[in-house]
């Protein structure tokens, strides 16, 4: 196949495809607009409240949640479980880390409506009554915080990090904890706390 022929084929196909798409657009603008409006109506403008069942810290919850509500806002705004923190709402900081079915996850990127039947653990559910989780003890012991705002997310991540087995060295801990920003920069304490629990 010659070079020029190849090019021709491509452009012709491209032309046909695009022009038909444009034709389609020109012919049926109303239906697209209607479709768009439908989506807007159904999912955004109208508040859709969905029944959900989930387990948080071992407790059953049967709730009605706005379809737009994130798990993070469900915890903080609806259930007053404010231990889980909002640091960006964009999946960029780790402050909102919780465990969903035992795995660390960002609650700001998880819609509450998708948590149907899931088991959530938050910082409030980590201690066993008055007995702190060893990771919480370690954060106290190593001063793994300053302002404390990133701390619940750090601890939830840290517990998962140990379970995942990513704690073989200081470097590995640091790498696998780098999704949790601490703007106070308490990284020494955080890392040393995890190391002390991991061994």
């Amino acid at each position: 196949m010659s070079h020029s022929k190849n090019e021709n084929t491509f452009s012709r196909r491209f032309f046909i495809k695009t022009s038909s798409a444009f034709t389609a657009l020109a012919l049926v603008p109303h239906s697209i607009k209607a479709f768009y409006n439908d989506i807007k109506e159904t999912y955004f403008t109208k508040k859709v409240v969905l029944p959900i069942y989930l387990k948080i810290n071992g407790k059953d919850y049967n709730l009605n949640a706005d379809s737009r509500t994130t798990l993070l806002d469900l915890l903080r705004e609806n259930l007053n479980l404010t231990g889980t923190k909002k640091g960006c709402d964009h999946g960029q900081c780790g402050a909102c880390t919780v465990h969903i079915n035992g795995q660390r996850a960002l609650s700001c990127l998880s819609l509450a409506a998708m948590m149907q039947g899931k088991e959530i653990t938050t910082i409030e559910g980590l201690a066993n009554g008055d007995n702190l989780h060893p990771m919480q003890e370690a954060f106290l012991e190593h001063d793994g915080y300053q302002c404390g705002y990133c701390t619940p997310g750090q601890i939830m991540s840290a517990v998962a990090c140990v379970n995942e087995g990513h704690t073989k060295s200081i470097e590995e801990i640091k790498e696998y904890m780098s999704g949790n920003i601490c703007r106070c920069g308490a990284y020494n304490g955080i890392t040393n706390a995890i190391k002390s629990v991991a061994k």
Partner: peptide, 24 residues
């Protein structure tokens, strides 16, 4: 806090510490 760390430490590691947006 009887044993270790800062006096407000337990509040911080258990999620009980309330920051300004967290009062219901």
């Amino acid at each position: 806090l009887k044993n270790k760390g800062r006096i407000e430490g337990i509040a911080k590691v258990t999620g009980k510490a309330k920051y300004s947006a967290e009062y219901a």
